[in-house]
Design a binder for these strands. Sequence first.
DNA 1: CCTTCCCGCCAGACA
DNA 2: TGTCTGGCGGGAAGG
Length: 405
Amino acid sequence: MCFGRIYICVIAYRLIYLFEEIYMALPEFHAAGAIDSGSKDVPYCRKQKSLGLLCSNFLSLYNRDGIETIGLDDAASRLGVERRRIYDIVNVLESVGILARKAKNRYTWKGYGAIPKTLEDLKKEGLKENGCAVETSCSEKTSDDEDDEMCSDLNNSSQTEKSDSNSVPKCSLSNRSGENRKEKSLGLLTRNFVKLFLCTDMDMISLDDAAKLLLGDGKRNSVTTRTKVRRLYDIANVLSSMNFIEKTHHPLTRKPAFRWLGLNGKPDKENVDSLVLSESKKRVFGTDLTNATIKRFKVDGDASHFLKPHIPIQIKQENLDNDVGRTKTGGKNYQFGPFAPANVHKVGTSQDEKEKQVIDWESLASTYRPQYHNQALKDMFSHYVEAWKSWYSEVAGKNHIQLLS
DNA sequence: CCTTCCCGCCAGACA
DNA sequence: TGTCTGGCGGGAAGG
C-alpha cells in the first residue's frame, strides 16, 4: 500500500512536469506575456537577458535533427524575446556559417559542420584584403569586385544574398547610404572581427583596439569608436557563448581583451556535430528555454524563487566530415562559454553516469525538489508535498524520516 | 566611476 | 502603405 502511494505521487509528480513542459512550449504564452504573471516577483537580471545566453538557447533549440529552416517569428516567440534580438543573433551566426538567409523571415540551418569552411573562406578573404589594404587603397581587382558589390543595387543582393559584401571598411570609398548601412552591419562587422584573428598575429585584442582597426582611418573619433565598441560587445558575447573567443585580460595592461579560441573552443569534427539538450533533449526540472520577458526596470528584492534559464547542453560524439579546422588538442570536447549552465554535466561524462541518470530519474521524486519557473506549478507541487507529508506521518506514523525537505 | 550591453526607437529596404 | 530589417545610442546594471 505504501508503495502504491509512492507510485501515485511519482505519477503526479511527472504529470506536473509534463504539464509544465506543455505550458512552456506554447508560443502564445510567451508572445502574450502570460508568462509574466510570475515575473512580477522576479528581479531584473541582466545576465539572464544577454545575447550570449540567448544565442546558447537559440542553438539548443534548433541544433537537432530535422531542423532545416528557421522562422524568425518562431524563434522569437519560442525564446521569449523580441524579434530585434533574433536579428542580432542570426546575423552573427550567419557570419560564421551556422545559418544562411533563405528568404524574408527565414533562415536555413547549416549547422556546425559549415563553420570550418566559413572560417577558411574568411581567412582567404582577409588575407586577400590585407594585400589590398597595404598596397593600395582599394584599387585591386578583388577590391573592385567588392566595391562593385558594395555599390551595386541593393535590390539584387541585400535582402536575399549578402555573402559577398565582405570587404573591410577601409576598402570602401563611397558614402552612399545603402552602402554605408551595409558597411556598418553586424554581420559584416562580425566577419571583419573574426578576420582580425584569422589573418593577423594577434592572439588577443581589446574591443577598443578592434573597433579602431575596423574603422576606416578617417572615421576614428570617440563617438564612432564607442558605437563600434558597443556592437563588438554584442558580437563578442555571441561568439564567446559559442566559445569562438574567450574573455581575458591583457597581460601587460590588464585591460579586458578577447582571445581567439577558434575551433579549439567549439565543436568541430573531432568533437561533435551538435549541441543537444541534456537529458535526451529534455530540459531539466525548472529550467527555462526562454529569455523570459523580464524588463530591466522590474526590480524586486525577493530572488528566492528566481530561476536561471540556462540550457544544459551536452555533446553528441559524432564526427563531422569536414577537413578544415581540426583541433590541435584532438578529442577535446565542447566547453561552455561564460553562460554555461551550473548544472550541466561535464563533457566526457561516462556512459555509466548517463545511464545512472536515467535510473536516478526513478528516485527523483524522493530526492529532488524541482524549481519550477511558474509560480502556480510551484504552488501545486508544494501542495503535493504537503499532502504527502501529511499522509505519511498520519498513516505510516513515522516521524523519523524527513521527506523532500 | 568605468565598463558592459540591453533595449527599443526609428529609418531604410522591400513587398 | 505596411512589414521587415537592423543601425544606433541612451542609460541602467554590474564591477
